[in-house]
Write a protein that binds this DNA or RNA. Sequence first.
DNA 1: TTGTAAGCGTTATCAA
DNA 2: TTGATAACGCTTACAA
Lengths: 335, 335
Amino acid sequence: MSKATIDDVAREAGVSIKTVSRVLNGEPLVRDATRDRVKQAIVALDYRPNASARRLAGKRTYLLGLVYQQNSSYASRVQAGVLDACRDRHYELLIHPCNEKGEALLGEIRELAASRRVDGLLLTPPISDGAGVRELLDELRVPSVVLSKADEGDAGWSVDTNDRHISRQLIEHLEGLGHRRIAYVRGHPDHKAMGNRYRGYLDGMAAAGLESMAAPVGDNAFESGRRCGKELLGLNPRPTAIVCANDHMAAGVIRAAHEAGVSVPGDLSVTGFDDIPLAGQLTPGLTTVRQPMEDMAHTAAQLLIDRVTNPGMENNAHVLDSALVLRDSTGPAPD
Amino acid sequence: MSKATIDDVAREAGVSIKTVSRVLNGEPLVRDATRDRVKQAIVALDYRPNASARRLAGKRTYLLGLVYQQNSSYASRVQAGVLDACRDRHYELLIHPCNEKGEALLGEIRELAASRRVDGLLLTPPISDGAGVRELLDELRVPSVVLSKADEGDAGWSVDTNDRHISRQLIEHLEGLGHRRIAYVRGHPDHKAMGNRYRGYLDGMAAAGLESMAAPVGDNAFESGRRCGKELLGLNPRPTAIVCANDHMAAGVIRAAHEAGVSVPGDLSVTGFDDIPLAGQLTPGLTTVRQPMEDMAHTAAQLLIDRVTNPGMENNAHVLDSALVLRDSTGPAPD
DNA sequence: TTGTAAGCGTTATCAA
DNA sequence: TTGATAACGCTTACAA
């Protein structure tokens, strides 16, 4: 049982294996009646094509590689989105969490492209922002799609969100709550998304006619948020709101506030970015921005499969919308 | 370039492809000098065996399937551990996050075993605790290893931690801090680990000569922790410590305490279990138990590959030790 | 200790 | 619109 091959199906349907193959791959030149007969045989025998044989014989591997930073808080959402797209198109996914940076990162990608024979590579930030990564992918001639903005002047294959715009909306939200002294905690300068978020802050402050405050730079991790928070809370006059480039740092700022005896959101409003699982479980719940990660990943994987399937395809850059998630870490400005 | 086959290597080394194959697979019957020559040729040509061809020709797929609950907080640690083991043994990993329960879950596993031809399956809790799952794996004859205790009376293939014992240590820690009224928030009754943790609590209370208190049952999620916390804080006399079966629920209890104006750890000590990333970033940092997830997953994958490679192998159940992680959510009992 | 030849289950080529 | 038949790059008998 459960070991039917294409030959069995061909025999059962009374056709050649090539015809079965045509049906399997949705090729057009098959008469409807024949196609039906083959499909029936497939069901009757519970036939499953052997992926290894298909890979060996075909030009493709039906394999996608997903490269992302290990311990990235959105890894599982990205995986879910990609897997969804893969299932629809009969692709499989090889995940490749990665710790390296710089040359070592490039080496890993090179190795990945060489040893595992994937049809295409999907990269997420901050990997996709790494110096030389895009160039390497071109050099290796591996079709790829990145989650993150394409480089300027490069209409590249990418899926992104409107970070800058939504970041500006965050400022408008705070301004509407009466905040005037709104500080910012910047993210790691190598991550492109972080730059966009900061620009959105500046946009929002300018649009509201407010003066932007000190904007210390963190490294995206909790501790750096704590440090920046401490620094900002030492200011005089103190900010009434601190906007952070991601949730981890926002958690750090909340910790710093707690340590300084500053109550959130009574004395201080805090916002994050990403809506990681932590955000809803902090006390107070964190006002943040939710990116449609599954959708982005799904879109990216579809795009990649399209690109692989259809080599002549045009460049394609998608932008999906993020959404504000209002929780309890933001409130009216203290008087 | 980069498309050398076994034939190229054989020619370069002046041997037959069979000899190359022997070297590749570490088979013993090759003279050292020959082996060296082959290895040199492999390096010289940057030869990479074609995994698809190997799968097709061999009896194995060199593929492992990892089935886990989608959005599980330890998914990435498990993946990392498994991938490590896979790399060492030239296996690859197909991940299979899963949302189903009951019959639907069994159907997914059945489908997975049928369609993707994996050599073996790795299951993590709570999937591995699902009713009928172990039986199905036996029926399907898919070699598998579970992360979670083997069933009683079944010396099965599993890797587990000493949850019960470490849970007891948690009680000893609290007792040492002067706590006498220590309540417990139980986890989802279908998850075996949850039962063990609760038993450890009972052990610890008995050993300390304390009377166990109300132990409301949650569903492992934040909200249920909040609900149970609220309930326990309404008790009179109120517990001075609440031990939770996992971190999510502990976060919920902290939220409940905050809402009730009860300070942590001043008025109330709270502990979790799992040391998810959230635990360190809560305010206050959560005292919890860290399981060696990467190690467990690594061990499980090694075990599975051994089992697959060596069908005659004996059952094997491993137990690895968890560790207490003391943070700021526990402190001296209030007087 | 090494080599020869026959698969493994598909897709691709080319003819019918 | 269909079908022989040859790849694809390895492993596995079976010989030598």
